[in-house]
Nucleic acid binder design. Structure first.
Lengths: 193, 193
DNA sequence: TACATTCCATACGCTGGAGTATGGTAAACC
DNA sequence: GGTTTACCATACTCCAGCGTATGGAATGTA
């Protein structure tokens, strides 16, 4: 990671810059809005630059998704790997919905774009990874494998459903006491004490 | 509504035909795929016809959504209004996921298109209506208003999350025993006995 | 200084969908 | 039987995004 970068403040763009900007655009407007000319305009540049860094729009999306997935994967391990007690891990799972805003927003938009050939496999892997963590936690809490599996699926569905309601502007604001009450409710019905 | 319709078997198309075909297309490929020329091709006709029946693509979508929402609303009352015991109503809510296939698929795609200005208000109303039913059922089961409200939101989230997983091909097939086991699990954790 | 490489701008051509204009045809009406 | 009305085909224009071609400027390198 030596990043040459000289003293000249990086006047020029890199592929990484494009990928990150692409992810922000996805977070704001969804996958289908990722178009190279609008993206270039947004960055105050023209597509002449883009096609130097990428072969196509498809390639950009591919790499951006890859970057996001890697980041999300690291995140998952960092966030849930350091918490000892499984109950705390599960609680943390829900309470983290507010944090890592960009990552969550991207994921939400990716969910909305399920069916897209490039997005689908990413969604599949991410859901598997996350549900595996949930399942492990539930097993540590004493559930047998079969039940833990269903409980993990159920729990993850609650999370996905929450994201959906959020996209429809039908969730209480994250800092309201209504939100807190709901989270409490969810935790108490899904996590054995 | 006398429907002239003569004996001549309706060789010609009506606005209703376009709306229904539009809903089928949405169910198959999503809202963004609803374009007039492809739709016309699919119906073995040209857009000359379309623009006689509708002012714009937007108008078609509007009327199709309206038709769908009305149908769904009738459905909800018919399905849940005739079941006496609230517990049975709730069970029926989950078990109905397989039936009314077209309606559910359309809804799933509408969820994927939340954020679309014409779709959003529909989603909002539908979710409200459905959650209101759930809330009422939970209240009849003895929950106080506040808890029933959260339980309804939670239950509906589970449903939405299931639709999301379904869009990602991550749900067991509807006729497998794994599916049945999951449904059982969901019911037993969400519905008080 | 001469040259190469990197990065970007500009100007194209191509495609697909939106909407319009206009003409045609068959059934309905008088 | 002639005319109107309902429905559809054809042929356009317009626009936005994709991808290409090519040239120019800046920076490094011999």
């Amino acid at each position: 990671m030596s990043k040459p970068l000289k003293k000249s403040e990086r006047a020029t763009l890199t592929a990484e810059d494009w990928e990150k900007e692409a992810l922000e655009l996805i977070a704001e407007q969804g996958v289908q809005s990722l178009a190279v000319e609008p993206l270039a305009r947004r960055m105050g540049i023209t597509k002449g630059s883009f096609y130097w860094h990428f072969a196509s729009r498809e390639a950009l999306l591919e790499q951006a998704l890859q970057r996001w997935e890697a980041h999300d994967s690291r995140n998952l391990n960092k966030a849930l790997g350091e918490i000892d007690h499984p109950r705390d891990r599960l609680e943390s799972f829900f309470r983290r919905v507010g944090k890592e805003k960009l990552t969550h927003e991207v994921y939400s938009e990716l969910c909305a774009a399920a069916g897209h050939p490039q997005v689908e496999p990413v969604l599949e892997r991410v859901a598997q990874r996350r549900m595996a963590h949930l399942r492990a936690a539930f097993e540590e809490l004493g559930m047998n494998a079969r039940i833990a599996r269903n409980q993990a699926r159920l729990t993850y569905s609650v999370y996905l459903g929450y994201l959906q309601l959020q996209r429809q502007n039908q969730t209480p604001s994250l800092s309201s006491e209504e939100f807190d009450a709901y989270i409490e409710h969810v935790i108490s019905t899904l996590i054995p004490s």
